[in-house]
Nucleic acid binder design. Sequence first.
DNA 1: TTAATTTTGATAATCATTATGAAAAAAATA
DNA 2: TATTTTTTTCATAATGATTATCAAAATTAA
Lengths: 140, 140
Amino acid sequence: MQTVIKKFKKNLQEENLKSTPQRLAILEEMMKTDEHLECEEILLKLKEKGNKVSRATLYRTMDILVKYKFVRKLEIGDGRVRYDSNLVHGKRNHDHMICLDSGDIIEFYNDKIEKLQNEIAEKNGYKIIRRVHQLFVKKV
Amino acid sequence: MQTVIKKFKKNLQEENLKSTPQRLAILEEMMKTDEHLECEEILLKLKEKGNKVSRATLYRTMDILVKYKFVRKLEIGDGRVRYDSNLVHGKRNHDHMICLDSGDIIEFYNDKIEKLQNEIAEKNGYKIIRRVHQLFVKKV
DNA sequence: TTAATTTTGATAATCATTATGAAAAAAATA
DNA sequence: TATTTTTTTCATAATGATTATCAAAATTAA
């Protein structure tokens, strides 16, 4: 969607950050995948397509993408940082179920849990900004 | 509680691990705190009490304590690893609310969410082994 | 007590991420 | 369009938490 790129450019401007080919290449790469990619994988994908970007630039740009919620940082405690794109069409707000046997990451969403979370926060005088909800599971 | 120490010794035996003063000192230290401590803090507390333990031993022992569920590893995405003791009297199963302004970590528990989680896992053919549920909040 | 095995601790190695600083690119200005 | 200013990039060094190494010490079993 062109609108995503336009929004990104606008966000960059708002912070006096410049629109560069590297930043755009990274954004576009994240628009194309619904996997949970690690930095090295993103770097590799970019390289394969001829968009070579340095490690430092990738890390810096991922922080920008997280800040503007184009992607979400996903840490499941195995020491690897993954990124979950919010840019893939039809993808909604979700949480993760991680299979301890296969390593599969399954997305789930539950409206009731959502509501209960809000109630808990409210009851304590807080509002929720962001949440992490991960179920580590095994096949029955 | 003597029973905790006995249980620990039994667990060690079961895996052909030896009962050492360092391991016991670390367990006992974790029985005394309901804070969410980092490795360096645990190391410091031990040192202050004259129980000097090397970094390597501390890391190795924390893994054992996690394995036997004496403590829980708590990672809230700020790059610091904390340990949440399950050994403090009256402490139950809980999740965490993290205040983005103050850094406070507030514990919460909700039975309904617990049930919904189990339903979700079941529906997908899984059973829950462990879970991470963190609400990042700000004061209203 | 001895012997076999495990653990400890000091230090080196690792590895993901961040800092550095010169060269290149982008935006602003003339 | 050329020039100037500012930001960004890239390659590499630095960082810092955790892990590996291995000789010396401690533990357990016989």
